[in-house]
Design a protein around this nucleic acid. Structure first.
Lengths: 158, 158
DNA sequence: TATTGTTATACTCTATAACTATA
DNA sequence: TATAGTTATAGAGTATAACAATA
């Protein structure tokens, strides 16, 4: 792997203190992992974001849950959830059913097609996961997850 | 710290396989860290995003760089950069100067006020960094950064 | 009165395509 | 022709405020 032809337009910039900031490294890594996720799905002719995958898993595992409960689990506002569900519903992956016990709420569920798609998505996610952890040993991967969880729970916002 | 009153609206949802997915843990951690960053600045009456901080550092360390060079360093399109610079310029933190050697480019630089603000921002970022790493030993923090870099460089998109 | 879902609105980040000025 | 910056436009994620239906 040779260096790209370092013309006048691609000088290495001085990044100063940034490389040692945990938040910065975290952000760049998250960005690269996101891009890998997108590339994995695009290469397979599928379209899904990590957020949508998480949402589908949540609905599959908690069939009948309300939009409020889902929004709370995702940490987003209920109004933010509406267009996201609209899209997944338009793709035939998910349905809003009227709750029998509370007329205000929608009972969310995957369609048969949604379950089938989720199975496929899951194998794509596993391939993606394998790749992003490819330079890490099993132990290192476990350590990384533990350390990330420590960081997450040591935060103001939690 | 007592648990919140677990009413009918906050049942613990089944998150299935998600807690073991590195990508998922990374995303949630990044989200929590982002929220902590925002809270730190808001508490200090300052307004800045992690991305803006990174941009200011880059400009401070590479005075006179062009918008193209900056966009490339940030991994975003040049058109995306325009409104971001507009805002920072409107806040008086940064200026676009005409390049003496190439009339097409703008030479970016911080204003004196920008340097002063950046000094303040830097100390806020350091407080934020200290908090998010508060549950980690020095060694663990170093390990975490190393593992994150390994993940980042083991990605398709790199 | 309070809650759920929706709509209207607004802001930010992101991109592509086309335009202008300059090289 | 090619590059830099801008503008126009569009899509997605995020929020707040107000509204209708239901509890």
């Amino acid at each position: 792997m040779s260096r790209p032809p370092a013309g006048p337009t691609s000088p290495k910039l001085d990044r100063g203190m940034l490389p040692t900031l945990l938040g910065y490294v975290l952000r760049r890594t998250q960005s690269a992992v996101f891009a890998d996720f997108a590339a994995t799905f695009q290469a397979a002719g599928a379209a899904l974001t990590p957020g949508e995958f998480g949402l589908l898993i949540l609905v599959a595992r908690n069939t009948g849950l309300s939009q409020m409960a889902l929004a709370r689990a995702l940490g987003i506002d209920r109004s933010t959830l509406v267009p996201i569900l609209d899209r997944l519903q338009a793709r035939g992956l998910l349905v809003r059913r009227r709750s029998a016990t509370d007329g205000r709420t929608h009972a969310l569920a995957l369609t048969p097609s949604g379950y089938k798609a989720l199975a496929r998505f899951t194998s794509l996610v596993q391939a993606h996961e394998k790749r992003i952890a490819s330079r890490l040993s099993k132990t290192e991967t476990r350590t990384l997850i533990e350390l990330l969880e420590k960081v997450r729970t040591g935060t103001r916002s939690l």
